[in-house]
Design a protein around this nucleic acid. Structure first.
Length: 923
RNA sequence: GCUCGGAUGGUGGAAUCGGUAGACACGAGGGACUUAAAAUCCCUUGGCCUUUAGGCUGUGCGGGUUCAAGUCCCGCUCCGAGUACCA
């Protein structure tokens, strides 16, 4: 019988569907294992061969765990809200939902063809009202909460109100972006609107006036992780900074926990490091600098308190609230001109220019330690969003301050012994301090680290400032001026104050609109919706939530996808708890993976979920790059010359569709048919073949290097695709897609098939396995068990090939051997093994088989081979019985007749015996 | 600039705690079967020198530690990823 993968794969995929083989449910008596893939955005292009890489890896793991006796949860769904569908809707008028549903259907079809063991009964779509009800619900809880910094968790906002009524804002231990302090009397005297405005500065989901990344081309704001190098990640359009009132999530309140809890996660160091950098812990001091001729004090943040004696000026961010206060009448025009200039620069321009710019405010501040007056400047190299938006400038020891001082001709006072600051600043935090003594504080002679500590202590004692930790992590901007996203469960009352709708009104469904564009008056698309009001007739919020809203808690929903009472029920959450293995790309390190951890922690604070972290182990698969092929056309002709002959001609390389090239050999007939202009192409061949050139490029339509998994499945079968993608190299490595080796794994499957079948009959017999058979099999089991546990699949596939080759050489026909072999292979190649499972007379599905244990007994050798080396060079081998002691091995090695030649009559200086491996003789 | 990875045959990649580098696969070369092709099977395949056997050399470059280094240490070169005025 032929190995007919098309028939086999179709048959078993249908069987698995009919039998609900992959449906999972709570089994209290069984240990659980939750394997999750990052769910895809269903784009119009469908899956390409890069997508399944991670899915195959996790699928193998899920199947492996199931065979090992775990109750496995392995779901899949769709991150269905997103820009492409909306952009497409704007261009064509096609409702994004229609596009999305169509794309999802295509994805599903493609995924099924590869034979994944997903429990489709648990599928989620972020755009489904039944799903986004819980996205809205979580937002609502965040709106009703504040962050208690003492308990280090979210608490109901009512508790904070009670506190304000009694004590005012003094000592309230709440994370806030507000600066206004008030007493209990002041609070109680506030109007309703004033109180609500004050509370807004404390809510975890809050409306705030913040600098946002505004993308004019997309007509929406973007989060920091959606912007890279001054342009939008999607589309690459310029982004400008703009002050806007937006919904935000107080992610920054969780910075400390997000950082600390990283330590206990089983993630790669590189992705933990990326998150640490993004969170950006920095310990320093906040210091007050009194303004000359005023009671006003300005707060700065520094990590270099020790350099206080070298402060020769101060700099404010252009957006700082101090700017207005320090600008003198004489400087007013100059300052305004500068602010105007800054405002009109895009992020990108600011970055490209990197030119020193700034303006003198006219005012001076007093250095609180030296008592000297120092000028206050305004410059955009100071960021409003970090620290206090104001700095003390120490040009001798900060390169940015240095450039600024040189440009404006300000004093540069060196503070570290031996540091030469004539050409550039000395930024390193090391050396011995000098020029830093007066009657209040003496730092001279100290190491920088000691000086920092001493200064911090001093300023706290003197009441000049306090020790402070700052994080780079900002609050997440949560509004998008778009149509295709979750509506906010928010309406605006008669005073224009945002209020949450009733929980019973959830889900608040996305309304229909006539066009997917902003309104004429510049409101977001929801402004076009008719009757877009809450049940109390008050107008609803017009913005929608960003992409990361729906993906932040989806892993919880899979645990209990049909629950209408809760995001996830207590029983389901208590059983499945958290994701044990999460597989996806590194590109989500600073976006999804931060937001999701934040979201989970918020829910955890209220006990809605039982684990503080969503993803226990994270595995990052690499990216699949494209591998393009080229043909070489001789200039001004329609003649193409093969790769190795091209240097003799004047040629232009032309991209050729990789799907008509095999092993870099061009299919000439298909090429002629590919494009009309090539119909009468002529070729100069080498060895009767046309060899194409190649290059590694991004996988894209324009390079003709997109490979669709369906084509591979069609040609070789899903099992071959799965094995090949794993065989290509480590799953975590990025690599180009290259079909050049796919025949190898296909041959392996055919060989396995042909060892089971002899014509149409089964070749295998009940014959007892030989010692060699058992050794070969158990070597495999041992290797694969260890490799799969750490997702080292490429070496596993190699082990299968070795095993089958050995059994072939041994002419093994023992059914007992194959019974176990196919179980070990089943996670990798589920279809062929399922077929063989039944051919060999087993019941049910191979998915429920038991992973075989390996037996060390079979692997034991009676003799051990030692390599005898002289001065580090291997010379000959000896064999000794197992368990021979070192001294005896040494004696046998030296008395072997091969040793004579290398000893040459001399006595060995030293002999090293490495158990079971090597005898090294130093002569 | 900073942080983290990486560099091994013609190619993708193996190599546990430092222990015979190049597993496995592709490609290439040779052979068997075949009228022929495909498929299948067998042999060779890092380089150099001799070829019965053997010898030398070899993991980006330069040093070091060690009986022994792809692996550990120091100093470079190149490539990739992330981040970027974070005080």
């Amino acid at each position: 019988m032929e190995y007919n993968f098309r028939e086999i794969e179709k048959k078993w995929q249908q069987y698995w569907r009919d039998q609900h083989t992959y449906q999972s449910e709570i089994k209290a008596d069984k240990p659980k294992y939750y394997v999750l893939d990052m769910f895809p955005y269903p784009s119009g292009a469908g899956l390409h061969v890069g997508h399944p890489l991670g899915y195959i890896a996790s699928d193998i793991f899920a199947r492996f765990k199931r065979l090992k006796g775990f109750n496995v949860l392995h779901p899949m769904g769709y991150d269905a809200y997103g820009l492409p569908a909306e952009q497409y809707a704007i261009q064509t008028g096609q409702h994004p939902e229609v596009t999305t549903v169509k794309n999802i259907a295509r994805y599903r079809e493609q995924l099924e063809k590869i034979g994944f063991c997903y429990d489709w009964n648990r599928e989620v779509r972020t755009c489904d009202p039944k799903y986004y009800k819980w996205t809205q619900w979580a937002f609502m809880q965040m709106f009703k909460s504040y962050y208690n910094t003492e308990l280090d968790k979210a608490r109901p906002i009512d508790e904070l109100i009670a506190y304000f009524e009694k004590n005012g804002s003094e000592g309230c231990n709440a994370a806030t972006n507000g600066k206004n302090a008030f007493t209990a009397e002041q609070w109680n005297a506030m109007t309703k609107v004033e109180k609500e405005n004050a509370l807004m500065d404390y809510r975890i989901a809050y409306r705030g006036n913040t600098m946002v990344n505004w993308c004019p081309k997309l007509g929406t704001v973007l989060a920091n992780d959606e912007v890279s190098e001054g342009v939008s990640l999607r589309g690459g359009y310029p982004v400008v900074q703009k002050m806007m009132s937006q919904w935000c999530l107080r992610v920054s309140a969780y910075a400390g926990r997000l950082l600390r809890d990283l330590d206990n996660l089983d993630w790669t160091d590189s992705i933990k490091e990326t998150q640490r950098n993004w969170i950006g812990y920095s310990e320093g001091a906040e210091m007050q600098f009194p303004l000359v001729g005023s009671d006003e004090k300005m707060l700065i943040f520094t990590t270099r308190a020790d350099t206080i004696f070298g402060v020769t000026f101060m700099v404010l961010a252009p957006e700082s609230e101090y700017v207005e206060k320090v600008t003198t009448a004489e400087q007013k025009a100059a300052v305004e001109a500068y602010l105007d200039e800054v405002k009109h620069k895009t992020e990108r321009e600011r970055m490209i220019e990197k030119k020193v710019s700034g303006v003198f405010s006219g005012s001076y501040a007093v250095n609180p330690v030296t008592g000297k007056n120092i000028p206050i400047y305004i410059s955009d190299y100071v960021l409003a969003g970090y620290g206090t938006g104001a700095i003390m400038a120490v040009p001798a020891h900060d390169s940015r301050d240095y450039a600024f001082a040189k440009h404006f001709n300000l004093d540069i006072v060196p503070l570290i012994e031996g540091a030469d600051v004539s050409e550039e600043s000395f930024d390193a935090k090391e050396g011995i301090v000098m020029n830093s003594n007066n009657d209040k504080l003496q730092l001279n002679g100290l190491q920088v680290k000691e000086a920092i500590a001493k200064t911090k202590k001093f300023i706290e004692e003197e009441g000049i400032g306090k020790v402070k930790v700052n994080y780079r992590l900002r609050d997440a901007i949560f509004s998008r001026q778009r149509y295709w996203g979750e509506p906010f469960p928010i309406y605006y009352d008669a005073d224009g104050q945002p209020q949450v709708i009733e929980e019973s009104e959830l889900p608040l469904q996305l309304p229909e609109v006539d066009k997917f564009l902003p309104t004429e008056s510049g409101e977001p698309p929801l402004g076009r919706a008719k009757n877009w009001v809450a049940t109390n007739d008050q107008p609803l919020e017009l913005c929608t939530m960003p992409g990361f809203a729906g993906s932040s808690a989806y892993y919880l929903r899979y645990m209990d996808p049909h629950n209408d009472e809760a995001l996830v029920g207590e029983e389901a959450n208590g059983y499945w708890r958290q994701v044990d293995l999460y597989v996806g790309g590194t590109e989500h390190a600073t976006g999804h993976l931060i937001y999701s951890r934040f979201w989970n922690k918020f829910l955890f604070d209220y006990g809605y979920v039982c684990e503080a972290e969503p993803y226990k182990k994270l595995f990052n698969q690499g990216m699949i790059q494209g591998r393009s092929n080229f043909v070489y056309r001789i200039k001004d002709t329609n003649t193409f010359v093969s790769l190795n002959l091209k240097d003799e001609y004047d040629v232009t390389p032309i991209h050729v569709d990789v799907n008509i090239v095999s092993n870099d050999v061009l299919d000439i007939e298909k090429f002629r048919a590919w494009r009309p202009e090539f119909a009468d192409a002529e070729f100069i061949l080498e060895k009767d073949k046309y060899i194409c050139g190649w290059a590694i490029e991004k996988m894209s339509k324009s390079m003709f290097n997109v490979v669709n998994p369906d084509d591979i499945v069609d040609r070789y079968g899903a099992d071959t695709l799965r094995l090949y993608e794993m065989f290509l190299g480590p799953v975590e490595a990025s690599k180009p897609w290259d079909t050049n080796g796919i025949d190898g794994v296909n041959r392996f499957l055919k060989k396995l098939w042909n060892m089971v079948f002899d014509g149409d009959a089964v070749r295998l017999t009940e014959e007892k396995p030989t010692a060699d058979n058992l050794k070969t099999l158990h070597k495999l089991i041992k290797k694969v068990t260890a490799d799969v546990e750490v997702l080292s699949y490429n070496t596993s596939v190699a082990a299968f090939m070795i095993c089958v080759n050995e059994l072939y050489t041994q002419k093994c026909v023992s059914k007992a051997i194959f019974d176990e072999l196919i179980v070990v292979l089943a996670p990798f190649a589920p279809h062929i093994t399922e077929e063989l499972w039944h051919v060999l007379g087993h019941e049910g599905t191979i998915c429920d088989a038991q992973w075989p244990a390996f037996n060390e007994e079979y692997l034991k050798e009676s003799n051990v081979k030692y390599t005898v080396m002289f001065n580090g060079k291997p010379r000959f081998n000896i064999e000794v019985p197992v368990g021979t002691d070192k001294a005896e091995v040494e004696r046998l090695a030296l008395s072997d007749k091969g040793a004579e030649k290398w000893l040459a009559g001399k006595a060995p200086k030293k002999v090293i015996v490495v158990p079971n491996k090597i005898v090294n003789v130093v002569v």
